[in-house]
Simulated scan of single mutants.
Amino acid sequence: MSQNEKIKPKAGDLLISEPFLQDENFVRSVVLLCEHNEEGSFGLVFNKLSILKLGELVEELEFLENEVFVGGPVEQNTLHYIYLGEKALDRSIQIGQELWWGGDYEQLVEKLKTGLIDPEKVRFFIGYSGWGLNQLEEELEENTWIVCREEVDLQTFEYTPEELWRKLLKNMGGEFKVMANYPLDPRLN
């Protein structure tokens, strides 16, 4: 029985890619699981920057310099967002203690324009990561992902994309702390 069989994933969990995963979309990635149910799973890669700034994608927010992350390889023509704090948008889905996914886009734009939402507490993603029925469970059994229950907070937002993967593994301790130092290529070990 693998480590991951003990932990059943749920919305709000972080999925940490195993150290030697070679899929270019998920090398050393951390995926925020937004939805996990009997139909499949939906997540956003939390630590893969795109080359775009929010103002380049959304004309109404051209004054913002927020970085945009690549949420995953699926539908990269879509924009997704999460935010920290109290519920600020209609139709937002709570996925953590103070973590919200999506919500009314027009409200988001207006509240960012008027300063009612701090742009530093919002993260934007193009595309998403998706798993079909039982696909994520199969990948967990193959040890492709490590389920992390660390709460996403402002500190999580502040880690650089390069350090987030390592920091989360180190925080988990034990064998995971050791994994955090594995080289990308096991032949270099």
Rank of each mutant, 00 (worst) to 15 (best):
D153K: 05
L84K: 02
P183Y: 14
A11E: 04
W101R: 11
V70I: 10
L57A: 00
R187K: 15
F20H: 14
K10R: 03
W101N: 10
K121D: 11
F124C: 01
F124K: 00
C34F: 09
R91M: 09
Y159D: 03
Y128C: 08
V74Q: 00
W100Q: 07
L188Q: 15
T144Y: 11
S29V: 07
V122S: 00
R166I: 03
M1L: 10
L133F: 15
L89K: 12
L61V: 10
E137N: 13
L84E: 02
I117S: 05
E151V: 09
D104L: 14
P9G: 08
Y83G: 09
L184C: 13
K113I: 12
G12K: 03
L188A: 14
S2L: 01
N181F: 13
A88T: 10
A88L: 11
W165F: 02
V70W: 00
G43L: 04
G96N: 03
G85V: 15
V147R: 05
K6F: 14
G85D: 06
A11G: 06
E162F: 13
N37D: 15
G12P: 01
F63R: 13
W165V: 04
P73C: 01
I51D: 00
V45E: 02
S29C: 04
S50G: 06
N171Y: 03
G173N: 05
K170H: 01
E120D: 14
L49Y: 03
E39G: 12
E139W: 10
E162S: 15
S92I: 01
F125D: 01
E39K: 15
E56I: 00
K113Q: 14
E98G: 12
F124A: 01
D90E: 15
L32H: 07
G132K: 13
N37E: 12
T78D: 13
R123D: 05
L140V: 03
V109F: 10
Y83A: 09
Y81I: 08
W100P: 04
I126E: 09
T114I: 11
R123N: 06
Q94F: 08
N25P: 04
M1T: 13
